[in-house]
Amino acid sequence: MKVNTKYLNETWKLFILKNDLGMEINILNFGGIITKISTPGKNGKVENVVLGYDNYKDYKTDPYFFGAIIGRVAGRIENAHFSLNGKQYELETNDGVNHLHGGSNGFHQVLWEGETFESDAYAGVTLHYISSDGENGFPGNVKTAVTYTLTNDNELILDYWAQTDETTPFTLTNHSYFNLTGNLRDTIHNHHVTIASHQFAELDDALIPTGKLLDVKNTPFDFTQGQKLREGIVSNTEQNQIVGNGFDHYFIFDYGKKENVFVREETSGRTLTIETNQPGMVMYTSNNLDDGITLSEGTTKKYLGVCFETQGFAGSLHGSNFPSIILKAGDKYQKRTAFRFGIDY
Score class of each variant (00 low, 15 high):
138 F>W: 02
23 M>Y: 03
212 K>G: 08
14 L>K: 12
100 L>A: 09
326 I>W: 09
38 S>Q: 10
296 S>L: 13
298 G>A: 15
225 Q>H: 12
324 S>W: 06
108 H>Y: 04
124 G>T: 02
36 K>M: 10
42 K>M: 11
217 K>D: 09
284 Y>H: 04
272 L>F: 12
306 V>P: 00
282 V>Q: 06
224 T>P: 05
128 H>S: 01
257 K>I: 03
194 T>E: 09
112 W>D: 02
27 I>S: 01
138 F>M: 03
25 I>V: 13
62 D>N: 07
158 L>I: 09
39 T>R: 02
131 S>C: 08
299 T>S: 10
65 F>E: 00
119 S>R: 01
1 M>K: 11
192 H>E: 13
159 D>G: 07
105 N>K: 14
187 T>S: 07
174 N>R: 00
207 L>W: 12
293 I>N: 02
35 T>N: 10
344 D>P: 04
162 A>F: 00
68 A>S: 14
94 N>L: 10
309 E>S: 03
218 N>P: 11
223 F>W: 11
326 I>N: 04
306 V>E: 06
167 T>H: 06
156 L>M: 11
228 K>N: 09
315 G>H: 04
51 L>N: 08
173 T>N: 01
106 G>V: 05
292 G>C: 13
137 G>C: 07
194 T>W: 10
160 Y>R: 00
233 I>R: 02
255 Y>R: 15
82 F>P: 00
109 Q>N: 12
77 I>N: 05
29 N>T: 00
278 Q>V: 09
263 V>Y: 08
177 Y>V: 04
16 I>V: 13
187 T>A: 06
211 G>A: 06
98 N>L: 15
231 E>I: 15
33 I>Q: 06
284 Y>F: 14
162 A>G: 08
66 F>T: 01
137 G>Q: 04
21 L>K: 14
204 D>R: 10
115 E>M: 03
20 D>A: 15
125 V>Y: 00
12 W>M: 10
5 T>Y: 03
77 I>P: 03
246 G>H: 02
149 T>D: 06
39 T>F: 01
93 T>P: 02
244 G>L: 09
335 K>H: 14
194 T>I: 14
218 N>L: 11
